[in-house]
Design a protein around this nucleic acid. Sequence first.
DNA 1: TTTTTTCGAGTCAAAGTGTCTTGTAATTCT
DNA 2: AGAATTACAAGACACTTTGACTCGAAAAAA
Lengths: 189, 189
Amino acid sequence: MGETSKPLGRPRSEDARLAVLHAADDMLVEQGYAAMTMKGIAERAKVGRQTVYRWWSSKAEILLEASAADAVRELTLPPGADPEADISAFLSALSTFLTRSDAGLAYRALLGEAQHDGKVAELVRGGDVLGEAARVVIRRAGAAGAFEGERDDALVAELVGPLVFRVLSGGWDPTEGELSAMARRFLRR
Amino acid sequence: MGETSKPLGRPRSEDARLAVLHAADDMLVEQGYAAMTMKGIAERAKVGRQTVYRWWSSKAEILLEASAADAVRELTLPPGADPEADISAFLSALSTFLTRSDAGLAYRALLGEAQHDGKVAELVRGGDVLGEAARVVIRRAGAAGAFEGERDDALVAELVGPLVFRVLSGGWDPTEGELSAMARRFLRR
DNA sequence: TTTTTTCGAGTCAAAGTGTCTTGTAATTCT
DNA sequence: AGAATTACAAGACACTTTGACTCGAAAAAA
């Protein structure tokens, strides 16, 4: 059962796939989420409209695929010297991601859309980008045995919740000092 | 300069205003944010389309006005017996607000929209409903002198951030036990 | 009574939606 | 080689929303 036979017919065009992904990313950055349309993406990517609808059913899906890989890359860091430096570096990366990176812009757009679109909510729940990255850092900091008997999700929320909340609700751009204060507070618990 | 003379012309109809607000609220609950349209709201409120556009420029603005008052009411609680009970009760109210109340549904929709619409972002920043309510509770708990020299915004984010993050990113519905654990953690810092 | 502003109702062009059609290209199966 | 299958770009199609606009009527101050 290891090998699936090659599917019939003309294979999917990787060129077309990438063109759509890049067009979506560019349009989000240049014109904003509201101005993004399926029609506009198809035209910009020089791709048939049906080709877009065949593989994605909404602009949210396109955006998710376009940004997920970048998000993971930007939030995956080498281990720091000590737990405080490690956590602090992660919060700093998260802050930059949320406020400055294209992928972060897409993440916020998606999280936003998830609040009033059930399908997007499932997508976001499924590809839990932030959570994955945060868990790695938390485990590293807790290797010595702290955080015993605490739910993973609760810890993730404790770590990223305050920062994410401030960015989402106010467009706040934190200083390094505030970030390391947050890191210290998280570790003393 | 205390008194402004009465404006000329036909006064704004309070009936029309309320009809629009109620129509928007009902449509959000019954059909969801995506299905809400300016046209639909006007028709349901039995109001001219121009009347809607004259006073509000987007469905987000209507929703904000429709839910702001309710939100404040639902999140304003009588003081509790002790700080822990007080904070715990607030988190419980916040959780119910976010996951079950109509106004909370509107709040999440607005916070979502703010992520990809600058105008909505300013509206949300301006009418900082959650922050106002949280500050009251925090001040009450800190009356004895805790939390000295800490920025208000930081404290608000510490208190509500983890809960809000979990609801926004996963539609999570917390138990009473988890809420009081969060309250205790917030007070021991 | 005149002026000013709002009211409900509706028209209109522009744009997006998602499906469908047409003709062509790429790949596997017989 | 030829048939079957699937993807491709281009665009037609009916439907909907948008936001500016027009119309005549109504409500209040000057």
